[in-house]
Simulated assay, not measured.
Amino acid sequence: MKVLLTGGSGFLAVHCLDALLKHGHDVVVTVRSDEKGQYLQELFKGKPFSYVIVKDIGAEGAFDEAVKTDPPLGAVLHTASPFHFKITDNKKDLLDPAINGTTGILKAVHRLAKSVRSVVITSSFAAISNYSNPPKVYTEEIWNDQTMDEALNTTNPQAAYRASKKFAEKAAWVFMESQKPSFTLTTLCPPMIYGPVLHQVKSLDDLNVSSARILRLYQGIQRSGPAGSLMHVDVRDLALAHVLAIDNPRALNQRFLMVAQLASEKELRDIMEKNFPEIRGHLKDEATDALPPFGIDNSKSVNVLGINYRPLEETIVDAVKSLKALGA
């Protein structure tokens, strides 16, 4: 099957490309520049994929040309969305790109790629997280309770990011209900995504947010602020879930919470010190062993998608090994 993969040069997307190719798919990838596309061509030399440039995913008609392929597309994996906290304007920097990018790909497929039967969108646990009134156990049924007014006016960049993921996913489901396209929709909601780095990283300063967190903990760099999310999923498991969702009839028009487990900051650091003894005693902060007062129910992803989540130690060790290869 021919599959379009958006955001193709990102941390998750490169693993999605790897999984798609291993499952025998022919892939078209969207990237922001020729340089990123050529990096992927070198990484997956000889494999059946090509790339197209989409410089601004939030622009009107951004994906119009990307969805026109020969042979025609059968599925779309949409992973492209901003994930950063360098924000000066919540609407312009986060909300608009996330919402317009998501609805933009759906509009393009609906108008120009009638052959597409399934679309899979990478949402986020951020679209589920309910910080003002957390449940005892998180499931796919729960939504972030932020309002648009709160999203536009918050001075907390993490809150603005969480809102962008909620409203982007909500917009996708509204589109499905109002337009009734010929394709189905599946959304996947991961928390922090850890694991080995495959995408192009010119400098450790350019790491994606979740890999940078692993790097700081490995290097013992003092943290500013709270420990952050204590939920994780391995990037390889999440990438496989995207591919499995394409053809699984039980996954169509469904939402999945993609969380392997809860793990404290101390647990992550202990795994690192066990496997990389050279860093013992070099932690410049106290790693907290606190866990959140709620649980997670990932049974739907296990039972419907068939995901067998990797153990935490494998995820963290492989992540650190890849960072060391980059010069950590």
Rank of each mutant, 00 (worst) to 15 (best):
L5T: 05
T6R: 03
G7H: 09
F11L: 03
D18P: 02
A19P: 08
L21S: 11
K22Q: 15
H23N: 14
H23T: 13
G24F: 03
Q41Y: 06
F44N: 01
G46T: 01
F63C: 05
D64A: 05
D64H: 05
P71E: 10
V76E: 00
T79W: 09
S81Y: 13
F83E: 04
F83N: 06
H84E: 02
T88N: 14
K91W: 12
K92D: 12
L94D: 06
G104R: 01
I105Q: 06
K107P: 04
H110V: 04
A113E: 01
I121N: 05
T122E: 08
T122F: 08
Y131C: 10
P135K: 13
P135F: 11
V137F: 06
E140R: 00
Q146Y: 08
T147F: 02
M148G: 06
E150M: 02
N156V: 12
P157N: 10
A159I: 12
A159V: 12
Y161W: 12
R162A: 15
K166F: 15
K166G: 10
E177D: 14
Q179C: 04
K180I: 02
P181R: 09
T184I: 02
T186V: 07
M192I: 12
Y194F: 15
L198G: 01
V201Y: 11
L204D: 06
A212T: 01
R216G: 14
G220P: 02
I221W: 05
R223D: 07
R223S: 09
P226N: 15
L230C: 06
V233A: 01
L240H: 03
A241D: 09
H242R: 02
A245I: 02
A245V: 00
A245K: 03
A251P: 04
N253S: 10
V259R: 07
L262A: 09
A263E: 12
E265N: 11
K274Q: 08
K274M: 03
E278F: 11
L283K: 08
K284L: 14
D289T: 12
P292M: 08
F294L: 07
G306M: 01
G306E: 02
I307H: 07
R310E: 13
E314T: 11
D318Y: 11
L323S: 01
